[in-house]
Design a protein around this nucleic acid. Sequence first.
DNA 1: TAGGTTGACTTGAAGATTCAAGTCAACGAC
DNA 2: GTCGTTGACTTGAATCTTCAAGTCAACCTA
Lengths: 160, 160
Amino acid sequence: MSAREQSEVVEPRWLTEDQLAVWRGFMRLVQRLPAALDAQLQQDSALSFIEYHVLAHLSEQPARRIRMSELADLANTELSRLSHMVGRLEKRGFVYRETDPANGRYTLAVLTDAGQAHLADAAPAHVARVLDLFVGALSPDDLRALRRISDTALARIDGL
Amino acid sequence: MSAREQSEVVEPRWLTEDQLAVWRGFMRLVQRLPAALDAQLQQDSALSFIEYHVLAHLSEQPARRIRMSELADLANTELSRLSHMVGRLEKRGFVYRETDPANGRYTLAVLTDAGQAHLADAAPAHVARVLDLFVGALSPDDLRALRRISDTALARIDGL
DNA sequence: TAGGTTGACTTGAAGATTCAAGTCAACGAC
DNA sequence: GTCGTTGACTTGAATCTTCAAGTCAACCTA
């Protein structure tokens, strides 16, 4: 690298007024929508939004079990956080862990009947709120646009 | 309310396959985009995403000061969380508090020169990442769609 | 097959957020 | 003017998340 390049000052890039307005609005949504869903779940079912998703993803797996690391990816969380969280869900009897019989390096999280039942209790009100607050307002065009926007951004985030 | 109504079972509502796919993708974005921005800010400037926004909003206010409750709204957080957060920023010398001289019930948060300087240091890399990961990929149509979607959802959330 | 490496968790402490109370200034009713 | 009420914070404890280490099984590699 040349001295010229080393000392080069990168011109700061900024958002246009329009971009900034959309960005701020979107960030408002990004903070407030999960908070609203959390509040409903917490009140009605004593679950956080992520705990709900952990149970929901588990219930969709064959034999209601899946590796911790895969579950962490599905639930959009780090493994450490998931480990603590599953520990708490385990104490409540909703989940238990077992070493993967096929490979001792992996741990499987398993949904219990009590966990499945709790999820089934929680789901209707949660889904209703998702529809009322967000998804129900999306037109087919909105759905297409949002899918495209999400996919593009997620690809960029994965590429970090 | 009649006995008929009291015992009425509400038919559960569910998401279509298409809605569910979009919703899951969007929630993935909602969790991962802030995490990616947090990581960059934390690494480069020892600030969380919300702390950054607190400083940014303060710097835009006349005399770089604003009521705690207004700041909480702008930063999309609860007052209690903001109070703890401002306490930490205060310890670092980025902010201080004073009772509103116009009305003793209010507290003003004030951005210090050190806070302003820290924000100015942090901003370019943060804005660059916002552009790279998200805003830069949005077409004018995307911007319009996203603004519409955010506004609709936020109106519904506010109406709770 | 012993020794080192990698990947998948787990753990405990430190730090942050949430929840439920508590404080305090201003206001309104009497 | 005193008394309750309201609204805007603040506080401390409980809970949760993050960070840095630690453990352990499987896999290389010599």
